[in-house]
Write a protein that binds this DNA or RNA. Structure first.
Length: 397
DNA sequence: TCTGGGGTCCTAGGACCC
DNA sequence: TCTGGGGTCCTAGGACCC
């Protein structure tokens, strides 16, 4: 039986949280983000969007477009609290939710909507109830698969509600520009446009023809995208958050820097922060990667492995420093970062360690055997005589 | 004074082993 | 004496997402 999946996405989440923190900001053009050398807009209110301000834009550019905008530094701790209240509301409607990020989730609504006469009214009520309870606005996409639901929630903001049945795919999705395809970004979209693929419908058409150029262009993603667009994508909502596979910290420097001496302090602090976050996750890693962004925005990476799983900042710092000094001493850098990888649980790592110790112990045991063997040989009459002779020497002294 | 920081997944090439 | 082929693991780089 077909499932009913909802994708629920909070609108202008960080900006909305800031208004909840300080109601005097309501109705004003608001930018959440950093000011300063490399500040960008994290999120902005709809009032600011009207001026052409958008996420990812350098803050100074945004302020040129909208000089009256109020810039607020983000308060992530508070966003996490609002985020939790959002998820707990959705969990009251259905416990089958998959947290996709701080401001969005998938919900399997199959059971919650069974027997509901007017699903649209039910979902509308959800939106208003959430707003009343938490002050947060959301857009909802409802569809038989997660990808279709995600596409739906993206289509109308704020407080949008879009239902996409399989038979609606052609009417609803095909006319959309190729850029709006979730999974096709700013590198692939222009290349598809060059091939005459301007809309999602064009993409679907090329896939029906099994276009070999398109297949080469998209690689493994071709098959995934084909299934998504045909309504055959995943409808499985994963309740448990997956264990992180890496923990990393990076920082854009106050100014471009060159040489280890200039960056070592920052590098050390980054390693300390990686250690702190790995500890919070209860993880240790078997390797690390040093990231460096040069002044042309090109990113370089160098990886190293550890003999033993660790999260120790001094071990990280030692590895990262060595990598930096051997590869980037002469590079002018904008950003540096360190990522701890190949993560495992600390508890399991301790088991590994005790195994390792046991092997060490065994090695030691072998050595003991060798010594015993040696001692037996030393018991040989000839050796005895030799040692007796030594004693004799001593006695001669 | 241009362009953050946190992640995941994929790809291509090389090393290594059988 | 002119060069196998498959599998796996690792590294570096890149695309994409929020």
């Amino acid at each position: 039986m077909a499932k009913i999946i909802a994708h629920i996405d909070l609108n202008a989440f960080f900006a909305t949280c800031e208004v909840l923190r300080d109601p005097s900001l309501k109705g004003k053009p608001l930018i959440v983000g950093h000011v300063g050398r490399s500040g960008i807009v994290s999120t902005c209110s709809y009032e600011a969007r009207a001026f052409g301000v958008h996420s990812g834009q350098p803050t100074f550019q945004a302020l040129r477009l909208c000089p009256d905008a109020i810039v607020v530094e983000p308060h992530f701790r508070d966003y996490e609290v609002y985020s939790r209240s959002f998820f707990s509301y959705v969990r009251e409607v259905t416990p089958l939710i998959e947290v996709a990020s701080i401001d969005e989730c998938y919900a399997d609504m199959t059971k919650a909507l069974s027997g509901v006469k007017d699903p649209v009214a039910f979902l509308r009520k959800m939106q208003w109830d959430l707003r009343e309870r938490t002050g947060l606005n959301c857009s909802i996409g409802v569809a038989p698969t997660k990808w279709l639901a995600k596409m739906g929630s993206d289509m109308k903001k704020p407080m949008g509600l879009v239902l996409i049945r399989r038979r609606d795919i052609k009417n609803v999705l095909y006319p959309l520009p190729i850029e709006s395809f979730w999974g096709i970004g700013k590198k692939t979209a222009p290349r598809l446009r060059e091939q005459g693929i301007l809309t999602i419908g064009d993409l679907a058409g090329a896939m029906e023809r099994n276009d070999p150029i398109l297949q080469a262009e998209l690689g493994k993603f071709y098959q995934t995208a084909k299934e998504w667009i045909e309504g055959k994508g995943s409808d499985t909502v994963h309740l448990e958050a997956e264990d992180p596979k890496s923990v990393g910290v990076s920082e854009t420097l106050m100014h471009d820097m060159q040489g280890y001496e200039e960056i070592k302090r920052t590098l050390f602090n980054i390693c300390k922060e990686v250690e702190r976050r790995a500890e919070k996750e209860g993880k240790v890693g078997r390797g690390c990667t040093l990231h460096v962004k040069d002044t042309t925005f090109k990113t370089h990476t160098k990886a190293a492995s550890f003999d033993m799983p660790t999260r120790d900042a001094s071990v990280l710092f030692e590895k990262a420093s060595a990598l930096y000094q051997t590869h980037y001493e002469d590079l002018e850098v904008r950003l540096i970062g360190v990522t701890l990888e190949k993560l495992g649980d600390m508890a399991k790592a301790e088991v590994q360690m005790s195994l390792w110790n046991y092997e060490q112990y065994e090695e030691m045991d072998k050595t003991k055997l060798l010594i015993a063997e040696l001692n037996r040989k030393l018991d040989h009459p000839a050796i005895m005589r030799l040692s007796e002779a030594k004693k004799g020497d001593k006695n001669d002294d």
